[in-house]
Nucleic acid binder design. Structure first.
Lengths: 242, 242
DNA sequence: CGAGGGTTTGAAGTGCATCAAATAGTGTGG
DNA sequence: CCACACTATTTGATGCACTTCAAACCCTCG
């Protein structure tokens, strides 16, 4: 009972299902199950047959692929409220990437068949899904742009800006969500580059770094620095929060 | 009449509508109109109010955004059978990029309201749209990966491979679809870099370049060279053709 | 406390960008 | 059909950003 309630709350809090009816959410909760994964646990690997998709309750999961010569490409990092693996539905039920919990995480898995059923029978949900995909597509475009136009320090600054409430322009503290080496991977740079670029960012924008905590006195200054090389205007939060 | 028939054929040939019923296609054709654009013509600019979306009959269109400090980011290059501007439907009817015909092009425009109507009333079409978006999302992931793992020569090789029929592994000729400076922009590099990287590619894979024509003796050699740094396996055509 | 990962630093290399100039190519009006 | 003007492409020289390799440092967790 308790667990079931937890599931419902987590589902209701997710980006994909927050507008769904309570009945629908109960239905998902009934078929879903929550698992705790330790840091480093591989949830599935690229080209596995996909039967379920996942919703992060808390923690972080890295989605990645590997090249022939052993390099790793980070497709995404997902956290609370985000889903992964659902795209397999449109890819012959094959996962197109591997997934690894990069810290202890609670993750809900839900049968893809349920999603398929809703796509076939729930027009309202399908529209939600269309919007969801459209936002992700836009995010990907932004990321491609960032890779070619922003330098390493600007990418880090931009990453931080997306972690704060962009509305209040004053003083803020943020907490890097996971190990710096994963942030580096997410931003497409090497840990050494990350370290040096962060140092440069500190010098140029007066932010203070204490371990994983970042103190920002002046959000405006940070955005001036990072967003100069971006075509999106500053308050530019990733996914609409409300 | 003649024009109307042309429209129908073009729509039927498009990726998004090829599985649609004849009745649906007629309906689109009735509301659509075809325009010829000269090279350099701007179709719309970023943040314009979006009333219509576009389908390329022939030619090439560059979709791009601009940063504060004047750099240009190429979002995509689209050609025959591809659409653009339809994503505005999920972005408050605002175009999120600008569009420029980079060569003489015939382009069909269709009211977004028609698309909206179908989304609301045509479940089969909605599913097509879901699949369409999922493929695009996958392509974007691939492109992000390419930007961080492939060097300039490999990106050019990869670009060429996506222009050929990947099934026949023998000798092939291809034709660069548009000016080299646009290919460079599409691949996120400067024209000078493109030129030098192409030279290196020629040396390393024995392809021959005669103006815009590329002669490839050994597709396998080219894919060995380019796809080594990619996590997708070789026959890896962008959008399913059938 | 010690082992092992995570992070920083240094030195050196590589790849792409930049700036500048030469060359090739294309379309136009005469 | 030619010559000019303009644009695209190539080439050279140089600089900068990121990477690589190697080593030190630091942190934390058993």
């Amino acid at each position: 009972m308790k667990t079931d309630h937890q599931l419902q709350v987590a589902i209701k809090d997710s980006i994909l299902f927050r507008d769904s009816s309570d009945a629908f959410i109960s239905k998902i909760a009934a078929k879903g199950s929550m698992t705790h994964y330790k840091k480093g646990k591989i949830l599935f690997v690229h080209e596995d047959q996909a039967k379920r998709f996942f919703l992060v309750k808390n923690g972080w999961v890295k989605l990645f692929r590997e090249t022939l010569d052993g390099e790793q490409a980070v497709v995404d990092m997902v956290t609370s409220g985000q889903t992964f693996g659902e795209a397999a539905l449109f890819q012959d039920n094959i996962y197109t990437y591997s997934a690894e919990a990069i810290e202890a995480s609670d993750i809900i898995s839900i049968p893809l068949s349920l999603l398929q059923f809703e796509i076939d029978n729930n027009p309202k949900f399908v529209k939600t899904l269309l919007f969801y995909n459209a936002s992700i597509r836009q995010l990907k475009d932004k990321e491609i742009e960032h890779r070619s136009l922003q330098n390493a320090s600007q990418r880090i600054g931009c990453f931080m800006l997306r972690l704060v409430d962009q509305e209040k322009l004053g003083k803020t503290n943020i907490h890097l969500p996971y190990d710096k080496m994963f942030v580096a991977a997410k931003l497409g740079m090497k840990p050494e580059t990350f370290s040096r670029a962060l140092k440069r960012l500190k010098k140029d924008t007066k932010i203070r770094v204490k371990g994983a905590t970042i103190e920002i006195d002046n959000l405006q200054q940070l955005s001036d620095y990072a967003c100069r090389a971006c075509s999106f205007e500053f308050p530019c939060a990733d996914l609409k929060k409300d």
